[in-house]
């Protein structure tokens, strides 16, 4: 009897989780292929490729927007790595005066949305001619992404400590050798986690790209927006799915790339 109730609880829980995480995407997919789906029909009258055809038509600018989005996300992630790897080392392995305050400053952008900050920076960006440029948008995207990268790399450094590097030193490995053969492989999980967040968060930015890009730097969320905000529902759904797919593909690609790099180094 008792086991039965437990199994019941587990079953209800799984159904609930599936409902809230899978159902929206099933619904988006149906919507993106639907045609003539008036209230109160629960399923569409007929299916059509119209929305997808629009999304991939050369006039829609989707492909360019995808490339712009990916370009920005990748450059932002590389800059974040360059900044966060030394910072993570300091925060994860050293004790120093003012560490708590510095860490708080570095992580603060997590709780204050970037649009609030970027409205303040807008004038400065205009003065330095950074608005309406990809560079300006890249700088913008660093604000909400860098703290996550720092956090992820810090945890990895914290687990690494100094002992392995000291062993390498005793065996005669130089500084650069030690970094690439001892430290870097150890950081891979943190780098993967931090880069995933960095890419996903950068891809998701809408309003700061609009503000700083001034309509000249067109990313995927910007192309999507008019359809999501009261436009053609099928096209909005198709863009939503496309966005999700690109995020997932970018994450898988990065994961594979880093793991392959790691394996290559192991063989050497």
């Amino acid at each position: 009897m008792k086991d039965k109730t437990t199994n019941g609880v587990i079953l209800i829980g799984i159904i609930f989780i599936a409902l809230i995480s899978i159902l929206p995407f099933v619904f988006l997919s149906i919507l993106s292929f639907s045609q003539g789906w008036a209230w109160p029909k629960i399923l569409p009258n007929s299916l059509s490729l119209g929305a997808w055809k629009y999304v991939f038509a050369p006039t829609s600018g989707t492909i360019n927007a995808i490339f712009t989005s990916l370009k920005v996300a990748i450059v932002v992630t590389i800059i974040n790595l360059v900044l966060a790897i030394p910072a993570g080392d300091a925060l994860g392995r050293y004790k120093f005066k003012g560490k708590k305050i510095i860490e708080a400053i570095l992580l603060m952008p997590i709780i204050i949305p970037p649009i609030i900050i970027m409205m303040g920076m807008h004038k400065t960006f205009i003065v330095f001619n950074l608005t309406e440029s990809t560079l300006g948008v890249i700088l913008c995207h660093i604000v909400p992404t860098l703290p996550y990268m720092i956090r992820a790399v810090t945890i990895s450094y914290n687990q690494l400590g100094f002992k392995w590097e000291e062993q390498g030193k005793m065996l005669g490995a130089g500084k650069i050798d030690r970094f690439f053969n001892i430290v870097f492989p150890f950081l891979i999980p943190g780098i993967v986690a931090g880069s995933s967040l960095s890419i996903v968060i950068s891809l998701s930015q809408y309003i700061i790209t609009v503000l700083m890009g001034g309509g000249q730097v067109v990313t995927l969320p910007m192309i999507m927006f008019p359809f999501i905000n009261g436009g053609n529902q099928g096209i909005g759904a198709a863009y939503s799915i496309l966005f999700a797919l690109i995020a997932v593909i970018a994450l898988i690609a990065m994961d594979l790339l880093l793991k392959r790099y790691y394996n290559d180094r192991k063989i050497n």
């Binding site: 360059v82 030394p86 910072a87 080392d89 120093f96 400053i105 570095l106 603060m108 920076m121 860098l146």
Partner: peptide, 18 residues
């Protein structure tokens, strides 16, 4: 401090600056 400087500068310029 040297290790943390680049990140701190970026945060100060872009975030605290804002």
């Amino acid at each position: 401090y040297l290790l943390i400087l680049p990140s701190l500068l970026a945060t100060v310029f872009l975030f605290i600056g804002g």
